[in-house]
């Protein structure tokens, strides 16, 4: 069985203060999982560790069967760009670029061939057709989130990770956003990891991992 995520004995600390301490966590390819815990429990740090943005103090992180500790500098950046899709609570669309350019940029940074039909299909599925030439500042919150999801999926990643995708949304939109992530990941054949403190996420994804503030 292939795993999208395999974590063993993972520890991360700021000085003496342990931020993340996870004995074991696995997510099979194509599956989805919610990591749920209160604010400050280290969820975001966990996501940053999985994305290779920070290094653990100890333990092993394998993403798509690759040991992240074996990847250095630019290789890690390229691995992240090629195989992962990230959606943050604050969407961070580049304000200088149009919606279309924001999505194309991700395709370019993933170093996959430019594929206009894929972009077109994605825009169609995410109901973004007609917004291509808009600037991010002209979009509604919902539209902007769909653009961020399109950007995270355009290069065909095997693992889609979202940080607090629902916490700023009302119930109806939260459910929609979650469904959109789930559907998009499934359509793209990607595993999905959602990190959140939002209890409304419970029961929506295949697996759940409770995180508590480490002692």
């Amino acid at each position: 069985m292939a795993f999208a995520i395999e974590v063993t004995e993972l520890r991360f600390a700021h000085g003496e203060r342990t931020i993340v301490d996870i004995g074991r966590c696995q997510l099979a390819s194509g599956q989805s999982m919610a990591v749920i815990g209160p604010s400050g429990c280290g969820k975001t740090t966990f996501l940053h560790l999985l994305a290779g943005l920070i290094r653990p103090r100890s333990g092993e992180i394998r993403i798509l069967e690759r040991d992240l500790s074996q990847l250095r500098g630019g290789d890690l950046d390229r691995f992240r760009g090629r195989h992962l899709g990230l959606v943050f609570q604050r969407l961070h669309l580049l304000p200088a670029l149009t919606v279309h350019e924001n999505v194309l940029l991700a395709q370019r940074l993933a170093r996959v061939p430019m594929d206009p039909t894929r972009v077109e299909a994605l825009f169609d599925r995410l109901n973004l057709t007609g917004l291509e030439r808009h600037r991010p500042s002209m979009l509604s919150q919902g539209q902007a989130q769909r653009v961020a999801i399109a950007r995270a999926l355009v290069h065909g990643p095997e693992l889609l990770m979202a940080d607090e995708p629902t916490s700023a949304l009302d119930d109806r939109h939260a459910e929609q956003a979650l469904a959109l992530l789930r559907e998009s990941a499934r359509a793209a054949g990607a595993a999905l990891l959602v990190v959140t403190h939002d209890q409304r996420v419970r029961g929506h994804l295949g697996h759940e991992l409770e995180m508590t503030t480490p002692a």
Binding site: L53, R78, R80, G81, R82, R90, H92, P95, A106, L109
Partner: peptide
């Protein structure tokens, strides 16, 4: 700074 961080998340290297 968020743009730059996001570019790194999308696969851009430091260089």
């Amino acid at each position: 700074r968020f743009d730059l961080a996001m570019l790194r998340c999308l696969g851009a290297t430091r260089w």
